[in-house]
Simulated scan of single mutants.
Amino acid sequence: MRKIIILLSLVAFANGNIQAQITNRNTHEVLKPEFGIILDSLKVKGAVLIYDIKSETYYSNDFSWAKMGVIPASTFKIPNSIISLETGVIKNDSVIFKWNGEKRNFKKWEKDLTFKEAFRASCVPCYQEVARKIGVNRMKTYLKKLNYPGMVFDTLTIDNFWLQGKSKISQMQQIDFLERLYFSKLPISKRTENVMKDIMIIEKTKSYTLSGKTGWGMRNDINNGWLVGYLETNNSVYFFATNVEKEETNMDEFPIIRLNSTKEAFRKLKLIE
Rank of each mutant, 00 (worst) to 15 (best):
K3G: 03
I4D: 13
I4H: 13
I5F: 13
I5R: 13
I6G: 07
L8H: 07
S9M: 13
V11T: 09
V11P: 06
V11Y: 10
A12E: 12
F13G: 15
F13S: 14
I18E: 15
I18R: 15
T23K: 15
R25L: 13
N26E: 11
T27Y: 11
T27P: 05
H28D: 08
K32A: 06
D40C: 10
S41N: 15
S41W: 09
V44G: 01
K45P: 05
G46T: 14
G46A: 11
V48K: 03
I50S: 01
T57P: 04
Y59I: 03
Y59A: 05
N61V: 09
F63G: 05
F63Y: 05
W65C: 11
W65T: 12
A66L: 04
K67N: 06
M68G: 01
A73Y: 04
F76M: 00
P79S: 09
N80V: 00
S81V: 06
I83F: 12
S84P: 01
E86N: 08
V89C: 10
D93F: 10
V95S: 14
V95A: 14
F97W: 08
F97M: 08
E102C: 00
R104I: 03
K108L: 14
K108N: 15
K111R: 15
L113Q: 08
T114L: 01
E117S: 11
F119K: 12
F119C: 12
R120H: 13
A121K: 15
S122T: 09
C123I: 12
Y127G: 14
V130K: 09
A131Q: 12
K133S: 13
G135S: 07
V136H: 09
R138Q: 15
M139I: 07
K140H: 08
T141Q: 05
L143S: 04
K144T: 02
Y148E: 08
G150Q: 01
F153C: 04
T155D: 13
T157V: 14
F161M: 11
W162V: 07
Q164W: 00
Q164V: 06
K166N: 09
S167F: 05
K168Q: 12
S170M: 06
S170R: 04
E179D: 10
P187S: 05
R191F: 08
R191T: 15
T192F: 04
V195K: 00
K197T: 11
I199P: 14
E203G: 01
K206T: 14
S207W: 02
Y208N: 02
Y208V: 00
K213M: 09
N220Y: 13
G225H: 01
L231F: 02
S236F: 00
V237R: 03
T242H: 01
T242M: 06
N243K: 10
N250W: 03
M251D: 10
M251G: 02
D252L: 14
I256Q: 01
I257R: 03
N260H: 08
E264K: 12
F266D: 09
R267G: 02
I272N: 10
